[in-house]
Design a protein around this nucleic acid. Structure first.
Lengths: 254, 254
DNA sequence: CGGTCGGTTGAAGCGCATCAATCCAAGTGG
DNA sequence: CCACTTGGATTGATGCGCTTCAACCGACCG
């Protein structure tokens, strides 16, 4: 049994609090002096079972993180966006494989040095804790999705998730990049590509979304999408900033 | 959107490392001076959305931790055993409801005090991190189960999980207490009670397990159960201590 | 231009959900 | 003590949602 943990936050960009003083040391700044490494589409950053030697920060691009059962069944446990950390763990082997689904740029940090920094700087720890908690909350939402949601609810939930994760999460343009293939979506949602495709077609047919080029969509009816996603008691109120009620507050009150 | 995180370890009893010096402060010892509170079967310790005021340590009994969708669908995200922590989070509201499924005993600790202790004692932090990582690893295994395993694989995986979690995880008696109802199992495994029941009947029929009283079973063929659970490349070798290859080592090498 | 890859769409089948009847053990009250 | 109730579990019959299998399409590329 192998080990390794990613700390991918839910999409709230670190280092950009409304009240951030520029020089406050944050997790991102740890990496700032590291050289940027490029990873091309489809290439792996590390494999499940590899010795966990480094922690990574994603600077650009999107990665998938997945586990594979012995008979080949694949489960994508998450997608990693710019600003997220990858490979943070106390275990000595990575728990999963990480592959780029777009050309990506990363910074690398030796695990031991990363841990030293965390131990040295008390103000970094709350941020790390916060990311763990966000990641755990996301994992639990995913369990709800996988255990009880229908195919259409899953696809709707997924579109909402990546829409809200879009850097900054602000309610800008309804144009949404969807860099992952149907197979990626299927393996993330516990479905087949055909079912994902059919669900997308249905969402398009009823006007909730519209295709825009090969790997982007336009969300035409956000509130309706949220209702289709199984987010109950959603009084229909178009374009309320997506759950800005719980923006990420104090972060472990120190 | 609500928040709250449990840190339930995978069943490795804290405070009992092979090389533990008795007085080393560990997470469990924090609670040792707190009075024990009893919770009767079915009673909740806290509800999803409650203000997260306390952290709990389970001393005795088993709890379920779950989320409910707006239309009533329930998903149990985990079961909490003695030695596990409950309610650890940086968020200010609990992410889920916690209910006793057997008579239980808990110790309570104010969240702010808990955080103070964590910040004060550097040797507690690695333990907390380790629990987060174990919890995250368990969540990922659960995602694999929910996304890709068949009903029979799910039930087999579940039995293996609680068998391995049994305090100490040592390969003692094959008698396994199953304190949860079929409904609990179903809501944990993303199935219905009927399907759980049928899968159990099938496991009994083919001799892998045997019923023992109303809420316990005997595991007759552990290796075969593991194979049925979808744990690939399992060469059949009865009663190897269950995955003792990765027992939980150094815990954040400091 | 054929070849490949990702996506869409249709038809058929299967695994699990649903509906329903029955059973069993453990109360509970007359 | 025994009828009656109640909650959990089992088992069967039926139906549906998703998978599976298969054909086809469009974009991209050597």
């Amino acid at each position: 049994m192998l080990a390794g943990i990613s700390v991918s936050c839910l999409g709230l960009p670190r280092g950009s609090f409304p009240d951030a003083q520029v020089s406050a040391p944050d997790l991102g700044s740890l990496f700032r002096r590291q050289p940027i490494e490029k990873v091309e589409t489809g290439a792996a950053v590390f494999w499940e079972g590899d010795e966990a030697t480094h922690v990574f920060e994603v600077v650009e691009g999107v990665l998938r993180v997945f586990k594979i059962m012995s008979d080949g069944r694949r489960v994508i446990t998450g997608f990693i966006y710019p600003g997220d950390l990858l490979g943070v763990s106390l275990k000595d082997h990575y728990l999963y494989t990480a592959e780029a689904i777009t050309p990506a740029k990363l910074r690398r940090f030796a695990r031991s040095r990363f841990q030293d920094e965390i131990n040295r700087c008390p103000e970094l720890r709350p941020q790390l804790f916060a990311q763990f908690c966000d990641e755990m909350a996301a994992a639990q939402d995913q369990m709800v999705l996988l255990a009880r949601k229908s195919a259409e609810e899953r696809v709707s939930s997924f579109l909402l998730l990546i829409a809200r994760r879009r850097a900054g999460g602000r309610p800008t343009s309804p144009l949404l990049a969807v860099p992952m293939t149907r197979l990626d979506m299927a393996d993330y949602l516990g479905l087949t590509i055909e079912t994902v495709s059919r669900s997308m077609s249905k969402l398009i047919a009823c006007g909730v979304i519209a295709p825009s080029g090969r790997s982007a969509i336009i969300i035409r009816q956000l509130a309706r999408l949220a209702r289709l996603a199984g987010e109950g008691d959603g009084d229909d109120d178009e374009d309320r900033p997506p759950t800005m009620t719980s923006v990420r507050r104090a972060v472990w009150p120190h």
